[in-house]
């Protein structure tokens, strides 16, 4: 377990119930916390410890996420934190105590990923990006070519229209017109 094995226990500096993830991330950023937050879904005492998730921070900026219950790390671990209220405990640690865990690449998340995916708060995303070290913003957080491609709705609609037209003309070529799902042709 990453949380037990590689991250030593820190000093509890805040514990809140009914915490939403966005407010907690904002709090961590304002405090410039170096350490970690344990998120436990409300009511998970009945569910056991498996539902807890851990997010670590350097100077208030998220570094990695881990969900011991599913052994999921990185972006996948963030899924465990979607859309609920949590009991959140903030722990402080020296950066050196986190260094080993922070080298586990597959558990790392983009600095703004938790705010973007869990809080949906653009202002918080911007504040987190501004606080993140340059190399983390440029390496991990620039919109990827894939994201840019998928954000271009007009470009995608053009691809789809072209494919539809091509499918129709080829169907004619191959004698498959009768198979087309086309109400105009009385299919």
């Amino acid at each position: 377990m990453l949380a037990d094995g590689h991250i030593p226990e820190g000093d509890l500096c805040r514990s809140r119930t009914d915490a939403d993830v966005g407010a907690t991330l904002a709090d961590v950023l304002a405090r410039e916390l170096t350490g970690y937050v344990v998120f436990e879904p409300q009511g998970s005492i009945l569910l056991g410890d498996d539902e807890r998730a851990v997010v670590t921070f350097e100077a208030g900026v998220p570094v990695l996420a881990y969900h011991p219950g599913s052994d999921a790390g990185g972006a996948a671990a963030l899924d465990a934190l979607t859309g609920e209220l949590f009991h959140a405990e903030l722990y402080e640690l020296p950066a050196s105590a986190l260094a080993a865990a922070h080298r586990v690449d597959e558990f790392r998340v983009a600095p703004t990923a938790p705010a973007r995916r869990l809080a949906g708060d653009d202002a918080l995303v911007e504040r987190t990006r501004a606080a993140a070290p340059d190399e983390r913003v440029s390496e991990e957080d620039a919109p990827s070519a894939v994201e840019a491609f998928l954000a271009d709705t007009e470009g995608i609609e053009a691809i789809r229209e072209e494919a539809r037209a091509e499918a129709r003309s080829r169907a004619a070529e191959w004698g498959l017109t009768g198979q087309l799902d086309d109400s105009e042709e009385g299919h």
Partner: peptide, 9 residues
């Protein structure tokens, strides 16, 4: 996907 949809799939 568009090809498939053209055939009702």
């Amino acid at each position: 996907q568009e090809y498939a949809r053209s055939y009702g799939t």
